[in-house]
Simulated scan of single mutants.
Amino acid sequence: MCKTPLHGFLAALPKAEHHIHLEGSLEPELLFELAIKNNITLPISTDSAFASIESLRERYQNFRSLDDFLGYYYIGMSILINESDFEALAYAYFTKAASQNVRHAEVFFDPQAHITRGIELSTIVESFRRAQIRAEAEFDMTTQLIMCLLRHLPLSGAMETFTQAKDAGYFENGTLTAIGMDSSEVPFPPPMWKDLYDVARELGIRGTIHAGEEGPPIYVTQALDVLGVQRIDHGIRALTEGDDTLVRRLASSKTLLTMCPLSNVKLNCIASVESFPLRRLIDAGVRFSINSDDPAYFGGYILENYCALQGTFHLGIREWEMVSKGIIMGSWCTEERKGQLLLEIEDVVNEWAKVVEEQ
């Protein structure tokens, strides 16, 4: 956690999160608890990391790549079996997020990874919805669900899962806000999923996709041009390797990049937080948000990501105001909710600006 004079300000600052995988918030403690409850044997015989909570958490400190991480990610989610498991997972994240003053959260989940294990889509979605209702009542937090499809699986499976969700009315009634696509980025370029995104767009369903994390900047361009997405998840290589034309395009279109600093370091996308392109994002006027991605695996929820950036780049209160308001404006909540959150930000900024002036 940062030790700068603005730590209290960062903690108090109202936040919105746009890039959090619910399955990626499965802490080792809950993983072991549910494995015991559901009589699931973890692969201790082939991987000593599963010998204890402590050894597993230590292993999470040393991922070599995205695929190395995903191996543990999919083992972890295998312990999610019944409705109470999914609800417990989501509610644990909402509780943690609320403690760090997340006021609005747009969360990912991976239905295919569960459906292929024989779990019904309705079990997953409706369990998460119950956790959302609890979070809204107890924490005054608004939340939205984004259904991510897995790009390492065939298009036919993605289409089938999407159709199930559509036919169940989950998009029409607002239970699901958008579709996304995650898992291994290379070698699965965005054009492979054109048919899926074409159907979603024709139905008025929003789209986002993981692009430019391990894949090249051209994946970001393809996602915009071929898939017509409204948002890019990660996109860091567009800033660290892309040309000025792409950066200017992102800025002028106000396309939100959902950035994940600690995740990028953990997965060796960048060498350190110092390599995160924060100043280029701000100077170029690119709209972006700061997120935790898979916090149980990467050692930091949203506040830890804010603190890591502050400890490196030393932004001022007014700079954080600009960043925070951009995050809210890039959200998919209602205009009324955006207005409420913008006022909350202004109140905290004004309060802390007076504190700093008096020091």
Rank of each mutant, 00 (worst) to 15 (best):
L303P: 03
V186Y: 03
Q144V: 00
R279E: 13
P190Y: 01
T240V: 12
K354F: 14
G180Q: 07
E214N: 08
C148M: 04
Q144K: 15
R130H: 12
G169I: 09
Q359H: 13
R103E: 06
P154D: 07
R130K: 15
L31H: 08
T258K: 00
Y72E: 00
V226M: 04
L303W: 00
E138D: 13
M329C: 13
T208R: 10
S122W: 06
Y301Q: 07
F9E: 03
P14I: 06
V348G: 06
M159H: 11
R129G: 03
K266R: 14
A11D: 10
W320M: 07
W320C: 12
D244N: 06
K194A: 12
A158Y: 01
E138K: 11
A223T: 11
V247K: 06
P189I: 05
H21F: 02
P28S: 08
Q230F: 03
K194H: 14
E160F: 10
A223H: 08
H19Y: 02
L150K: 06
A135C: 09
F188C: 01
R134W: 07
I44C: 01
S65C: 06
S65L: 07
L281E: 02
P154K: 08
P187K: 00
F9D: 01
D110G: 04
L343S: 14
I36V: 15
Y197N: 05
D198R: 13
A105Q: 00
Q359D: 14
G242Y: 04
T334D: 15
V226L: 02
F139W: 01
Q310D: 09
N39G: 10
M141H: 05
D68H: 11
Q61F: 00
M259N: 08
H19E: 05
I119P: 02
R151N: 14
H314T: 04
R117W: 08
S52G: 06
T161L: 13
S292P: 12
L22R: 10
K325P: 03
I327F: 05
L10M: 11
E351T: 14
I133D: 15
S156P: 08
S45K: 14
P111R: 01
T143F: 07
D47G: 07
H21P: 00
N291L: 02
R249H: 13
D243E: 11
C333M: 13
E17L: 11
D85S: 05
L262N: 04
F288T: 02
M181H: 10
I328M: 02
A238N: 02
D244M: 01
L196T: 01
W320N: 09
I44P: 03
R151A: 12
S55I: 03
E346N: 12
R206S: 10
A308F: 06
P5E: 05
D283A: 13
